[in-house]
Amino acid sequence: MSVGALKCPLDTRGRGVVVGKEVTDAAAWQQAVTRALAQRWLVQEPCPAPRITLNPGTPSLRHDLALGATDGHLAGVFSRLGTEERLNVARSGQLHAVYL
């Protein structure tokens, strides 16, 4: 079983995401991969977000930076900070400004 993630195109709020390490049944993972291939989903290699500690004695937070490109040119940027491994704003992630 893979530890990658499958992401449905044009999905929002993480509803169409299947994270391999969260799938405990090999048959269910294979079914998800088959569906993703047929529907041309994004396949993402796992890349854990780095942890940062803002204040000593408080839980560490995860932080990421996402870049979007259109036709080879930077089209958008955002950053998230959260307590969960999955930095999804619909869950516990919080958006932060990025200055270019």
Results as ranks from 00 to 15, higher is better:
Gln31Pro: 02
Met1Arg: 08
Cys8His: 01
His73Ala: 15
Gln39Thr: 12
Val18Pro: 02
Ala36Thr: 10
Leu61Met: 06
Thr53Ala: 14
Val33Ser: 05
Leu95Glu: 05
Asn88His: 00
Val98Arg: 10
Ala97Gln: 15
Gln30Lys: 14
Asn55Phe: 09
Ser2His: 01
Ala49Arg: 06
Arg40Glu: 02
Trp29Glu: 00
Arg40Gly: 00
Gly14Arg: 05
Arg13Asp: 14
Gln94Lys: 13
His63Met: 15
Gly4Thr: 00
Pro46Asn: 05
Gly93Phe: 06
His96Ile: 08
Pro48Gly: 01
Pro48Val: 05
Gly57Ile: 01
Thr34Leu: 06
Ala97Phe: 14
Ala28Gly: 03
Ala26Leu: 08
Trp29Gln: 01
Glu22His: 15
Ser60Ala: 12
Ala66Thr: 08
Glu84Gln: 12
Arg35Met: 06
Lys21Thr: 08
Gly93Cys: 09
Asn55Leu: 12
Asp25Ile: 07
Gln44Ala: 12
Arg80Cys: 06
Gly68Leu: 14
Cys8Gly: 00
Lys7Met: 07
Cys47Ala: 15
Ala38Gly: 08
Arg62Ala: 15
Gly68Thr: 14
Thr58Asp: 14
Pro48Leu: 04
Lys7Glu: 12
Gly4Arg: 02
Ala5Lys: 10
Asn88Arg: 04
Ser2Asn: 05
Ser2Phe: 03
Leu100Ala: 11
Leu54Trp: 01
